[in-house]
Amino acid sequence: MTKIDEDMLLNAIKNIKGDGTLGEKLLASPGDLFFSSSDLLRDKETHNKIMIMGLNPGGDPKSESVGSLGSNISKYWDDDSFKSYSGFIDRCWHSKADLKKAGHHKEPFHHYTPSKTYAECPICSKNGGVVPVGMQRVMQELFQNSVIKVDLRKSITLNAIFMQSIRGSVDLKDNSLIANYSNHSVSNFFKEYLYPIHKIILGIVKPKLVLCLGHGDQSPFSLFRRAIEPNPQQERDSCGATNSAFWKYFNYDGIHFLGIHHPA
């Protein structure tokens, strides 16, 4: 397998092991996978060998659903506006609370079509472009406007866990797919069902660095570390103290996994 495309991803998720219906349930649940340009996956020569790994899509899956995982994967490949795209730059992140605070009572516009990133958001449309907020603003300041120069448009960005939740791992454990899993554990669910999908992507993309946003107990870094179980000699942290490290690191199969404090 030498390339990533829509059919390959959908089939890989449909065929994950489980009760025979888990893949279909996962594709039907609110969630998303990629957060960067689809061209970066079509042509391996266009990305910068840096993969940015978030935990999962945020927001209330009931009142602020991002749409189903399956439809978002298809839209990602079919919509040309995803060909030059970074969710950290082009997407409107304003929530219902943001709009209410600004005096607007319209429901937030949850788009996964970059061509409509701000057209229906009263805050962004007034500005004539996306107004960065929260973690989005921090990511831009950290990687574009500081001494750390990373081109977010050339970095493949995706979610470790595909399902949407309000407060990351706090609510993920109550997700029906995980709650009905025998071990009822986010990390075990990731290792058994989701990591195999990531392993396929990593094997094709071959990044030099996977930059994990967060290195706490239920962070992307910890999920990958538990799934991969690297040689302890390949692990490092910034100070040797597990709870106070500014960063954590391990190397596996030539890929550097670096966990930093979550930028939110």
Rank of each mutant, 00 (worst) to 15 (best):
H215A: 06
K116P: 04
H94E: 03
K100P: 00
I123F: 01
D98F: 01
S37H: 02
T113E: 11
F34H: 06
D39A: 09
N231H: 04
G254I: 07
H47G: 04
I148D: 10
L40N: 00
V210P: 01
A119D: 15
Y112T: 07
I13A: 01
T117K: 10
L202I: 14
S68I: 03
D98V: 00
L142K: 13
L211I: 04
Y195M: 11
H111R: 14
H262E: 10
F224A: 04
F109L: 06
D217Q: 11
S84D: 15
I161L: 15
P207R: 07
I161D: 02
G70F: 00
L209C: 04
R167I: 03
S182D: 11
L142Q: 11
Y118N: 03
H184P: 03
G59N: 11
I178Q: 02
K62E: 15
V130S: 04
I148S: 10
H110C: 10
M53Y: 01
L258S: 09
E141L: 14
D78I: 12
D60N: 15
W247A: 05
K25A: 12
H110M: 10
L223F: 02
G168V: 00
G31I: 00
S244I: 06
F34Q: 01
A227D: 04
D171L: 06
N15P: 05
E24F: 09
N251G: 11
H256I: 08
T113C: 13
D237I: 04
N56E: 02
T242D: 12
R226G: 12
Y195T: 10
M139D: 09
E192H: 05
C121P: 01
I166V: 15
T242K: 15
I178Y: 00
D174L: 09
S222A: 14
M8C: 11
M163G: 05
S36G: 04
